[in-house]
Amino acid sequence: MAKPRKTLVYRHAGVTRATHWINVLALTLLLMSGLNIFGAHPALYWGQKSTFAHPWVSIGAEDKGDRMIGVIQIGSAKFDTTGVLGYSGKVGSREPVAFPSWATVPSFRDLADSRHWHFFFAWLFVINGLVYWLVGLAGGHIAKDLAPTGADLKPRNIWHEIVTHARLKFPKGEEARRYNVLQKGAYLAVVVVLLPLMVLTGLCMSPGFDAGAPWLVDFFGGRQSARTMHFLTATAIVGFILLHLFMVVASGTWNNIRSMITGRYAIVPELRDVP
């Protein structure tokens, strides 16, 4: 039997590819500068004000007499995170800092510079997102490629996709030409819920914006609640990115990267489709 020949199909338009890579840059620098900003006061609260004695989560260092350890506290539970969170660096030269230097921009503690980095890439991210949305809506990309169909939402189909993805079995043939319901759901959750939520809660951190639109801070339950939700949203986006990268590697690293660079995606036909 002849080996099935791969077919190259045009999967991603130029605007989709360009905005994707700009997002990679913007989100990376937003995360790293955001960690530096958070490191200035590595604790989170709910409500309008910071109750310093009762954060719901905090990162810090504790002196154990003979040694210093890094600690993350969630509620009443404490975890030793020495070397990663709270107290990190090379052995023998560790210092009390929320996040290791390799994870932050700049690599040293500098609240002013990290805010400059954060604000610049935040605006780049917002403008890039608006371009994606406007072009995607006008060109039909969002309605055609991301909106689930009635067939997608059938419980039997959803369960099938969950099982096949758990087994790392990926679609071939005609099914590989389009996103499945799990991909559509994940992408929509990010672009419709998580990313806008991150932007809106981020705006609540700006005193100037708060003065002009105090209702937005009230909508999120207070400035500290907005800060907490900003951090949790960013964490959820990081989780999505890690899962996304895993699936990219598991389903074919080069094929996926090529499709996001050139737009061309190689499809292997099902054996039953081969004459």
Rank of each mutant, 00 (worst) to 15 (best):
L130P: 07
D80Y: 08
P106R: 13
G150M: 11
T82Q: 05
A189K: 04
H165D: 05
G140W: 09
R94M: 14
S225D: 06
H160W: 00
V91S: 07
L44E: 00
A98K: 03
F38A: 05
A18P: 02
L203Q: 05
W133E: 01
S101K: 13
M205I: 05
G212T: 05
T228P: 01
G208Y: 02
G202Q: 01
W46C: 01
F119T: 06
I261N: 03
L111E: 15
L232W: 03
A166D: 09
W46L: 11
S251P: 07
F38K: 01
T104K: 15
F99D: 06
D218N: 08
E62V: 15
V268G: 02
P275M: 13
I127K: 06
V191S: 10
G70H: 03
S251W: 11
L130H: 05
V97S: 10
M32C: 07
M205C: 02
G150W: 09
R272I: 12
I22M: 11
S93Q: 14
V105K: 00
Q183W: 08
V181P: 00
V217M: 07
D66Q: 12
D113C: 07
F231N: 00
K64A: 14
A250T: 11
L146Y: 02
G47Q: 06
T51Y: 13
A77C: 07
L27Q: 08
L25V: 13
G14V: 12
V199A: 03
F108Q: 03
L146P: 01
R109D: 06
L134V: 14
G39I: 08
T164P: 00
D210N: 14
S58L: 09
L44A: 01
S107C: 01
L232E: 03
H54Y: 09
V268D: 05
F220T: 01
L134D: 00
D80S: 08
R156W: 04
K3W: 13
W133T: 04
E95F: 00
N256S: 10
T19N: 09
A98T: 07
G221D: 04
T201W: 01
T149W: 05
M1A: 06
M260I: 06
I22Q: 05
P106T: 14
G252Q: 04
R264S: 09
L130G: 10
T253A: 11
Y132G: 04
W133S: 04
R17H: 10
G129L: 15
G86H: 07
T262F: 10
F120S: 01
V163E: 07
D80N: 14
K78Y: 11
L168N: 13
W215M: 06
H230I: 10
A138Y: 13
M32W: 00
R115E: 03
P96H: 08
G222N: 09
R227T: 04
I162L: 11
G86C: 12
T51F: 11
S50Q: 15
R5L: 13
R94I: 08
V15S: 12
V126A: 15
W46I: 08
G14H: 11
L124Q: 04
G14A: 14
I127F: 14
V217K: 11
A234C: 03
K172Y: 12
V135S: 03
I158A: 02
E174R: 14
V190R: 02
V248I: 12
V105C: 03
M1H: 11
G202K: 00
K78P: 05
W123A: 07
T233M: 11
I127R: 06
T28K: 14
A26S: 15
M229Q: 00
K49T: 09
V249S: 01
L194S: 00
A250W: 11
F38L: 12
K154N: 06
P155H: 08
A53Q: 13
